[in-house]
Design a protein around this nucleic acid. Structure first.
Lengths: 233, 233
DNA sequence: ATTATAAACCTGTCATACAGGTATGGGGGA
DNA sequence: TCCCCCATACCTGTATGACAGGTTTATAAT
């Protein structure tokens, strides 16, 4: 039989600290009490408070920095990214499944982006797509541009949850992207991939959701085909 | 200037342990070395190893239990759920945004479920929908049935990433569901909500993706309207 | 061969100590 | 009066040693 108020002192501390954030309506950037004062207040050792802090820092609920007090954190996909990577490495998730989720989500994202993007975002998106064309011989740089393209697109949707999820996939994408790139060996296939990004950016800039969806769809058809060619999972 | 191999001993330990899991192809359930042996191997104190373990346990990469050795964990939405709740509580995410993401994803899920569901899942889905009808006067039970309906639907899609994401939303949904329910005060509006679930279950059982999408769409139209009526964010 | 039991091992928590980073207030200089 | 610099108090990072209590393993008795 488990006492619900106590799944170990660390769990209790995690609960207490979370509650402290909620009850005091702390916002990102606001600072928490020091380890010592929490340890006294909760009647546990500093060890316990520190482990609770690590736990909360792991999911980016708080930020830790040496010397400074812990602070409430802004939402950040890094933690989710690690979870996804773990799922893939342990064969609980495969890359195709991630692509299916991405396609589903990015189709919606591109629709919203075409409607809600700011002018700056439209400009930046085009700039990234064009920079990609110029980086065709620098795969590392090309990959980073590709990732930032999709991330900026997600931001343009004005829904932080989409941004979070797309960000969460980028960790594993960094590991699989080169495989997809290698399976597009001909200049033609590579040009196509770059041109598709330009098409998406243009459609979003033109506030044309239909066209944007069509281009995004083509992008995923092509990407998934490339991955299958490479025999990925 | 930062030495990349060292963002603090704990970070290093986290990296080393993650690498250990990857390099040895450990699968969920496999056990890790003890704190003491890791502490010796990595030349750090047990304190550091413990904090690293807490960190990895936070994102459900490992499971901890007293007396037992740490073990590789199966993927689990609990951690993601906490992150989402934190985002909502700190006004970085609002409930409507979550509903937009859910609609996007569940539309896809229901399509896949109609195609890939097992017979057992079809039966269970119908059973849950019918149980919901009988629980119309027990909101707490009704909510749990509702949540398990959507979770089972996600599982029926045969894509664990969908299951993960839907699971991640259930924490915050538990907190907002009652609000939506209260804003359906008339028997008619409540019956409609229940009937929609039955419709979805029937369409999935009938392997009719079109109809399933239509019913799911109706479900979300109705839910979002209910939330707006309640003035939620 | 089975079961009971003891030993070995492991995690949970605490107290203490110290190194090094951060912030804050006061004093000196302009 | 205002600003900059520095001493100091505060805070986090890490290590060590200790002990309680849960788990596994090996041993011994049946």
């Amino acid at each position: 039989m488990e006492n619900l108020g106590s799944g170990g002192l660390v769990s209790d501390a995690i609960g207490a600290i979370s509650r402290h954030i909620r009850d005091n309506d702390l916002m990102p950037g606001d600072r928490l009490p020091s380890e010592a004062s929490l340890s006294k207040e909760l009647n546990v050792s500093r060890t316990v408070v520190r482990e609770a802090f690590r736990y909360l820092a792991a999911m980016r609920i708080i930020d830790l920095a040496t010397g400074k007090r812990a602070a409430v954190a802004a939402i950040d996909p890094a933690a989710m990214s690690l979870m996804i990577e773990h799922g893939v490495h342990t064969d609980q998730i495969n890359v195709q499944q991630i692509y299916d989720v991405r396609r589903t989500i990015e189709t919606r994202i591109v629709t919203l982006a075409a409607i809600r993007r700011s002018d700056t975002e439209a400009t930046d998106l085009l700039a990234i797509a064009q920079a990609m064309c110029h980086a065709v011989d620098d795969p590392a740089r090309l990959m980073e541009l590709d990732l930032s393209f999709h991330l900026l697109l997600a931001q343009s949707s004005r829904n932080p949850v989409f941004t979070l999820i797309i960000g969460a996939f980028q960790g594993i994408t960094r590991q699989t992207w080169p495989i997809g790139w290698k399976s597009r060996p001909t200049p033609a296939s590579r040009e196509l991939m770059l041109a598709t990004h330009v098409d998406i950016a243009r459609a979003v800039a033109a506030s044309d959701p239909q066209q944007a969806v069509a281009s995004m769809s083509q992008h995923f058809d092509e990407s998934v085909r490339a991955l299958l060619t490479a025999g990925l999972t």
